[in-house]
Simulated scan of single mutants.
Amino acid sequence: MLKTTRVSMAMVAARAGVSGQTVSRVANDSPRVDPETRQRVEQAMAELGYRPNRAARALRTGRTQTLGLVAQTLATVGNSRMLQAVADAASARGYALTIVTLGDDGDIAQAFERLHDQGVDGAIVLNEATALAREVAAAGIRLVVVDSPPDPRFTVVSTDHATGARAAAAHLLASGHETVHHLAGPVGSFAASERERGWRDALAASGAEAPEIARGDWSAASGFEQTERMLAAGAPDLSALFAANDQMALGALRALAEAGRRVPEDVAVVGFDDIADAAQFRPPLTTVRQDFDALGEEAVERLVALIEGTQPVDLRLAPELVLRASA
Rank of each mutant, 00 (worst) to 15 (best):
V146H: 08
N79C: 08
E194D: 06
D273V: 04
Q247C: 02
S158V: 02
R6E: 13
V322D: 00
G176P: 02
S158T: 11
P35C: 05
D201K: 05
V136I: 11
S24K: 11
S158N: 12
Y50I: 02
V23K: 10
H182G: 09
E135G: 03
G207L: 12
A255N: 08
L83N: 05
Y95G: 05
P319C: 00
R302F: 02
E135P: 01
E36V: 08
R81S: 12
A44K: 12
T4D: 14
R114Y: 09
A192K: 01
D201W: 06
A92F: 11
S8F: 10
M45W: 15
F154A: 05
G296E: 00
A16Y: 08
R261K: 14
V41R: 12
Q247H: 03
L256F: 07
A27S: 13
T76I: 07
A278E: 00
R197C: 02
V100Y: 08
L59R: 15
V270A: 04
F190C: 10
E308Y: 06
R134Q: 15
L172S: 04
E297T: 01
L250H: 03
A58D: 08
Q21M: 15
S326M: 05
T37F: 09
E135N: 09
Q65N: 15
L48D: 10
G94P: 06
R200T: 02
L250D: 03
Q226S: 06
A131L: 14
P52R: 15
T227N: 11
L306M: 01
V23S: 03
V7R: 14
L69W: 11
N79Y: 07
R57W: 13
P35Q: 09
R32G: 03
P149D: 14
R25Y: 00
L317W: 01
A167L: 14
A244D: 07
P236A: 10
R324Q: 09
V12K: 12
Y95Q: 10
A191F: 01
A278Q: 02
N127H: 07
M9V: 04
S193M: 07
W199H: 13
G122C: 04
M11L: 14
A325E: 15
V86C: 02
M45G: 03
G62S: 10
A90M: 13
G271R: 05
V18D: 07
T179Q: 12
D105N: 11
A58C: 11
A184R: 14
E36W: 10
R282E: 13
M45H: 14
A232Y: 08
D34M: 08
L303D: 03
W199N: 06
V304F: 06
E320P: 02
Q226P: 00
V125G: 01
A169L: 08
P211R: 10
V269K: 11
D107F: 02
D29L: 15
E128H: 09
F224D: 13
Q72S: 15
L67E: 09
G260C: 08
L256I: 04
M248D: 05
M9A: 11
V86H: 07
T227E: 13
D117F: 08
G49E: 15
